[in-house]
Every structure is written in structure tokens, then in C-alpha cells.
């Protein structure tokens, strides 16, 4: 079985983000980038499937973006993915276009399962997985918190909804997007990091894939959230209690 895992390079969400002068892009200077945390969960899940699946499993990590995505893919390889593919692209892509490139890659790679983060923590769109499933006409399960292989190429997936856990049965091929509680990603082991240095990262141009951009969404403006909070130094606990009571009353 072949599993394809998407790996997006995103700014570390815990860092302070600054905008460029035109407010259409974030200022990437000095900004540490990481593998999208939800994609790391998807990578981890693919590794666990390989560890427990009866048959051999090949895991292919896919990146779309600037040359530095190389490093992001290297993270996935160090965690245990077998090989990686980078589709070079150096400007903004909306989810429709990302899913378009992925569709072409999937037609080329023929995986039975695509694991993705439920969303990337930079754009927070939560659309690419759904759009990809629609393009391919594949089964999909979003916000997965548990994946179980069953006999006859079937999958049982538990997904987290606002009102509880929903259990779905899926036929392969399928798209699954990972939620936070699916697993806790591993750190790469020393031998695995060394091995990853020799694993191939193939580069495929969009022209080779026969794909041309079809922009649907344009970023017009970004603005920083207002974070200034009012702080008051309290004198004692009774003061605190009084203020909490006051706050409860007004809300």
C-alpha cells in the first residue's frame, strides 16, 4: 500500500508575526518555520499504519512551495517517510489550487490513502482535503481522531465534531485529514535522522504535471489582531473576588 502525506512549511505559530509593508504577506525574515503541526500528526499516523499493517507500506511526503520546503520534507523523512516529492512554487496558492496540484501528483503516484493535516496553521483554511476528495471523487473523513484498518480494504474512522465523535466507514482510496487527538508525533531518532539525509527528495515542476494556476482567492489585506489587554494590580483576594463578581454581573 502507498500512503501519501502532505507536508506544509508554515511559520511557527507561537512566534510573533510581522506583516510586510503592503500588508498582503507576512514578513518571513528571522521567522522560524516548522512542519505544519497537523501534517506532523498525519506523518505520525502513516508511520503507525506502516508499523501495524500486515503488508508493506510506502510513505511518500509531498511538499509544495519554496526551496526551503526541502527542510520541512527532511523532517518527515527523518520521522520515517520513505521518500519525498517537492513541487517548487514561490507565490501564494489558494486551497483550490493546492488541491489541483495534489490531484495531479496523486494521478502520478496512485496512493490508496492520502493523509493530511485538517488545516495548515498559517492559512487556517481547512479546505484542501475536502476539495481534493471532491476532485478525485474519493471517500473522505475530516477531523480524524482515530483510524482503524478493517478487512477488505475498508477503514473505520472516528472524527471529532462539535457534538461528539462520529464514526465513519470508508472504502479505499480515501482522503483523511488529521485532528489534534489522532496521535502525538514522535521525535526523529538518531539513526533515522542519519538515514533521512540519504533519502531522495524528487523535484517535479508544475509544468511537468500539466498543471496551470487557476486562482480563485486573492489576499487583499492582512492585519494584526489587537492584543492590548488592560491589566490592574490587585491588593488582595477579596479585591479579586469583588472584581470577578462585578465581571459576572456585567456579562
Amino acid at each position: 500500500m502507498k500512503i501519501l502525506v502532505t507536508c506544509k512549511r508554515v511559520p511557527d505559530p507561537d512566534q510573533k508575526i510581522r506583516l510586510q509593508a503592503d500588508s498582503r504577506e507576512i514578513d518571513s525574515e528571522n521567522l522560524p518555520y516548522i512542519l505544519n503541526p497537523f501534517d506532523a500528526i498525519a506523518v505520525e499516523e502513516s508511520l503507525r499504519i506502516r508499523e501495524t499493517h500486515g503488508e508493506p507500506v510506502e510513505i511518500v511526503a509531498i511538499g509544495i512551495g519554496v526551496e526551503e520546503c526541502d527542510k520541512t520534507l527532511r523532517t518527515a523523512l527523518a520521522m520515517g517517510a520513505d521518500r519525498a516529492v517537492l513541487i517548487p512554487w514561490d507565490s501564494f496558492l489558494d486551497p483550490w489550487n493546492v488541491s489541483g496540484i495534489l490531484e495531479k501528483i496523486i494521478q502520478r503516484e496512485n496512493p490508496s490513502l492520502v493523509l493530511m493535516g485538517k488545516q495548515a496553521v498559517d492559512g487556517d483554511s481547512n479546505q484542501t482535503g475536502q476539495m481534493l476528495a471532491a476532485r478525485l471523487g474519493w471517500a473522505q473523513a475530516t477531523f480524524a481522531s482515530r483510524i482503524e484498518f478493517q478487512s477488505g480494504g475498508k477503514l473505520k474512522v472516528e472524527r471529532e465534531t462539535d457534538s461528539g465523535i462520529e464514526t465513519l466507514g470508508l472504502n479505499l482510496p480515501a482522503i483523511i485529514t488529521a485532528d489534534l487527538r489522532l496521535n502525538e508525533p514522535r521525535y526523529a531518532s538518531l539513526p533515522s535522522i542519519m538515514k533521512a539525509r540519504k533519502k531522495p527528495i524528487e523535484r517535479i515542476e508544475t509544468s511537468e504535471l500539466g498543471w496551470a494556476p487557476d486562482p480563485k482567492v486573492e489576499i487583499i489585506n492582512m492585519s494584526m489582531p489587537q492584543t492590548s489587554r488592560k491589566k490592574v494590580r490587585l491588593t488582595d483576594i477579596s479585591d479579586l473576588v469583588a472584581r470577578i463578581k462585578e465581571a459576572l454581573k456585567t456579562n
Binding site: 522560524p32 527532511r74 523532517t75 527523518a78 521525535y187 526523529a188 535522522i193
Partner: peptide, 10 residues
């Protein structure tokens, strides 16, 4: 933050 494939962490 420590990357998942940080050498010193490994």
C-alpha cells in the same frame, strides 16, 4: 521550539 528532527534532541 524544537523541531521533530532536531539533531541535538535526538
Amino acid at each position: 521550539k524544537v523541531a521533530r528532527d532536531d539533531f541535538n534532541a535526538a
